[in-house]
Nucleic acid binder design. Structure first.
Length: 280
DNA sequence: CTGGGGACGGGGCCC
DNA sequence: AGGGCCCCGTCCCCA
């Protein structure tokens, strides 16, 4: 993997404005989640993530990486990225007609893993006041969203807690409860094989297995995937950094799932329960 | 045994 | 409140 792949910043405004509408929010959201979850480390220089297991858990401050601060790209000084269209022609990846330009560009942001942009038209972009949760500090565009979020801070033994009549799971947040109830209602049925799903997008993803559509292309090697999660996992295989480490034999893995598999393998056969991995 | 990919479930957040 | 979209994680299969 070329070093530049790991360190370059992205100037999103270089991309066609037409791509903004459907993907702007997703990209911004993805970027912020990368910071929240620490996955930004996947595409960073390895030094901070090697050796000391504690260090591996520390996520560098986004502000230190982006002089412009969170939610910005640090002004117009960003280097142009490796072309998101490299290996693609007219929005196609490896000649795969199912790959839209929008998705191809979107995939690039997964590739880069650090991209973020101002949400055009959003409250943040317009500098509107945000509604911040006093308990965890998360902020929301509307008081309504904040109110909904605050439900998640209720105690499990709160009077507001409700139990799922089907499986008995307890929820303190009514939106979460409503969401959960949907998982028992498989009303989205595949017309091809009859398999049923609780969510329309689960069916959409499933349909790709019938149509062969692979809208998520890897900007690094051009390989296309039907599922974004699978593209993400694939991107990790491009990373030279394996920061999931077996505590017993010190072997390292690029993906947590590989480490988990390793724990189930001979390394721990006949041994006590696995020690906690680098990333618990 | 490891690496990689396909398929999918669940929950969070935004509009 | 509902719909849509997203990410995280897991299971399974195969090379």
């Amino acid at each position: 993997m070329p070093r530049s792949f790991l360190v370059k910043k992205v100037k999103l405004d270089d991309f066609p404005a037409g791509l903004d509408a459907p993907y702007g929010r997703a990209r911004a959201d993805f970027g912020s989640r990368l910071h929240e979850k620490g996955y930004i480390s996947d595409y960073m220089a390895p030094s901070a993530f090697e050796g000391d297991p504690e260090a591996a858990l520390k996520v560098p401050s986004p502000d230190s990486l982006y002089p412009g601060g969170r939610g910005d790209f640090g002004g117009g000084d960003s280097e142009p990225p490796d072309s998101p269209h490299s290996g693609m022609a007219g929005g196609y990846i490896n000649g795969d007609a199912a790959v839209s330009e929008g998705y191809a560009v979107d995939a690039f942001f997964i590739t880069d893993g650090r991209s973020r942009r101002k949400v055009s038209g959003g409250a943040a972009a317009r500098n509107l006041p945000r509604h911040t949760c006093g308990e965890c500090g998360k902020s929301y565009a509307t008081s309504s969203n904040l109110s909904r979020h605050k439900q998640t801070h209720r105690s499990l033994d709160s009077k507001m807690a409700k139990k799922c009549p089907t499986c008995g799971k307890v929820y303190v947040s009514m939106p979460a409860m409503a969401m959960h109830l949907l998982t028992h209602d498989l009303k989205h049925k595949c017309q091809v094989c009859g398999k049923a799903f609780s969510r329309p997008w689960l069916l959409q993803g499933h349909m790709r297995s019938h149509t062969g559509e692979k809208p998520f292309g890897c900007a690094h090697c051009g390989k296309a995937f039907a599922d974004r999660s699978n593209l993400r996992a694939h991107m990790q295989t491009h990373s030279a950094f394996k920061h999931f480490k077996c505590k017993r034999c010190s072997k390292t893995f690029a993906l947590k799932s590989y480490l988990n598999k390793h724990y189930e393998s001979a390394c721990f056969k006949g041994a006590a329960a696995p020690l906690s991995p680098l990333h618990p």
